[in-house]
Structure formats: C-alpha cells, structure tokens
C-alpha cells in the first residue's frame, strides 16, 4: 500500500512540474505586451520600461518561471494587470463560489446517479430501466443553460423559492449562500448525473454478469443481495473515475451557468481575464485548475486502492 501511495504521489509531483512549465511557456508565446496593454497605445517608452521592470517582465525565461513557481508556493500569485490587485485574493474570492458550487453539484449528481443507476441495472431491459435510460438521454441532450432559465422562470420568478441570480455570500450564514447556489447546482448536476447514471448502470451490469455473482446466487443470496454485496463494489472503479473527472470539470466549466445566474465564479474570472489579456490571472487560474485536477486524480487513485485489494498488494 505504501509503495502504491508513494508511486502515485511521485507521479503527482512530476505532473505538476510538467504542467506548470507548459502553462508558463504557452502564456509566454502569446503575443502582446502586458505593460503596453496596461498603459495604452500612447504610453511613453520610459514609463513602459519602468512598468516592465516593476512587473518583473525583464528577467530571463528561467528566472521568471522560478519566480512565478516560487511565488505560487508562498501563496503569492502576483498582481493583476487590469485590476491592479492581488491575484491570490481575487482567486480566493471566486473560489468561495466555485468550490461550494462544484461540490454541491457533484453531491447532487452522485445522489441522483447512484440510486438511478442501481435501480436501472437491477431491472435491465424492463420498463424501469428503459425509463431511466430515456431520462438520461434527455439529461444529456437538453442544454443546461436552457434548463437553468426554465428553473429561474418557475422557481425564482413564479414560486419565489430561490433567488434568480447573484450570490448572497457566506457572511449572512450558510442558508442564504446555499440558496443562491441551489438552482445553478441543479442545472450543473443534471447532465453529470445523466452521464454518471449510465456509467453506474453499465458497470453494474458488467459486474452482474461475472462468475462470482453466479457463485453468490448459488450460496443462496437473492438477486438484490448479490447486487448489493458483490456487484456494487466491483462496479465502483469506473464510477470513481468519472466522478473525479466531473469534479474538475465542474470547478471551471461552469462559465455558462455562472453567467446565467450572475455568479462571481472562477469560470467568469477566466473569461474576463482572457478578454482583457490579463495573462497573469489566466496563468494563475489555469495552474490552480491543473493543480485541482491532479490532486483529485490522486485522491481517486487512493480510492481505487481502498476499493480493490489487488492494487494494494501489487507492485
């Protein structure tokens, strides 16, 4: 087990180094000089030079890369070119929205997908299964922003249960914050739940066809017992993989939903920074997301080992 964890951890570190180098290089080759962008086209040459010096744009490639990485390790992400504020602070503000939103949506998606997938697999080919599969088709096909607007019409404007947009913040307590995230979380969760339901169902159906299920039935287990005790855990590996991928996606991929609900999340920050050529913000957010993806994958790898004893002893 220790070997497995160490190996996974080392590969995590390597992935981080490679990813940071790639991101840094990509941002470097993008045309455009942040200093001239900030000062406008009429800027004096000496003011430009001074600003470049101030922004640390004059050093060699390697030294600037090391400065950037070193800064991030200390929690210093630099200063935004356009907002002239601390990038770390900006990201932290946005994370207060994006992280809870992603977790909320993921929890909803899992809570929907597990029962639905299990239910469908247990009724393979029968009416219940067909109904669930039909619903997942719908969940995949309907664009979530359209569904979001529909929910705003019904639950915010007509019923007035939830706010139509904006984020109440966490200062006034948990409930107002959660309330403003509920509709966006549902909109985000539905397509994910549809995917996860299908993965859960097919993984379970595969597991139910295995010989050990026949053995379990020969012991006297009912169909349901065999599914719960033997098939379910065996079906978890592909499901965990998808959950890990969905979390990373939800963290940054919520930009459309953030726009529909006027949420100050990471997705909008990236979008605004790209339009404004605020490369240092783009760079930092992308690095942060890569970090999140890699850490989530590490966590998923650990979960694999908890589920499957073969991974604990092998290698």
């Amino acid at each position: 087990m220790l070997r497995y964890v160490t190996k996974r951890f080392l590969s995590l570190c390597v992935a981080l180094v490679v990813a940071s180098a790639v991101i840094f290089t990509l941002v470097e080759v993008v045309p455009g000089d942040p200093a001239s962008f900030m000062l406008g086209i009429n800027a004096q040459e000496d003011t430009l030079a001074a600003l470049r010096e101030e922004l640390g744009l004059n050093g060699s490639l390697l030294s600037r890369y090391l400065d950037w990485v070193g800064g991030m390790v200390r929690g210093d992400f630099g200063t935004s070119y356009t907002y002239r504020t601390d990038v770390a602070g900006m990201i932290a503000d946005r994370m207060q929205v994006s992280l809870p939103l992603a977790l909320y949506a993921l929890a909803l998606s899992t809570l929907i997908a597990f029962p639905a997938g299990i239910w469908a697999a247990a009724r393979r080919g029968r009416v219940g299964d067909v109904a669930v599969m039909g619903a997942t088709q719908l969940g995949l096909a309907v664009p979530n922003f359209w569904f979001a607007m529909l929910m705003v019409l019904v639950f915010a404007i007509k019923l007035r249960w939830f706010p139509a947009g904006g984020f109440a913040g966490w200062e006034k307590g948990l409930w107002p914050g959660l309330k403003s995230l509920t509709l966006p979380a549902i909109a985000l969760a539905l397509p994910q739940a549809a995917i996860l339901t299908r993965v859960m169902r097919s993984a379970l159906i595969d597991a139910l066809g295995e010989d050990y299920i026949r053995t379990a039935r020969a012991k006297g287990l009912t169909r349901g017992q065999a599914l719960r005790r033997h098939a379910l855990r065996n079906a978890l590996i592909p499901v965990l993989t998808i959950i890990g991928m969905q979390f990373s996606f939800l963290l940054a991929g919520a930009i459309i939903i953030e726009n529909v609900f006027f949420l100050p999340g990471l997705g909008r920050l990236v979008f605004q920074s790209i339009s404004a050529r605020d490369l240092i913000v783009v760079e930092s957010v992308v690095m942060l997301l890569v970090f999140a993806v890699i850490v989530v994958n590490f966590a998923v790898d650990l979960a694999y080992a908890l589920v499957d004893p073969r991974l604990r002893t092998r290698e």
Partner: peptide, 8 residues
C-alpha cells in the same frame, strides 16, 4: 473467476 476479487 468464481470468487469476488474484492472480498477476503
């Protein structure tokens, strides 16, 4: 394949 690989 007759045994569940995840249970002792």
């Amino acid at each position: 394949t007759a045994l569940n690989p995840l249970k002792n």
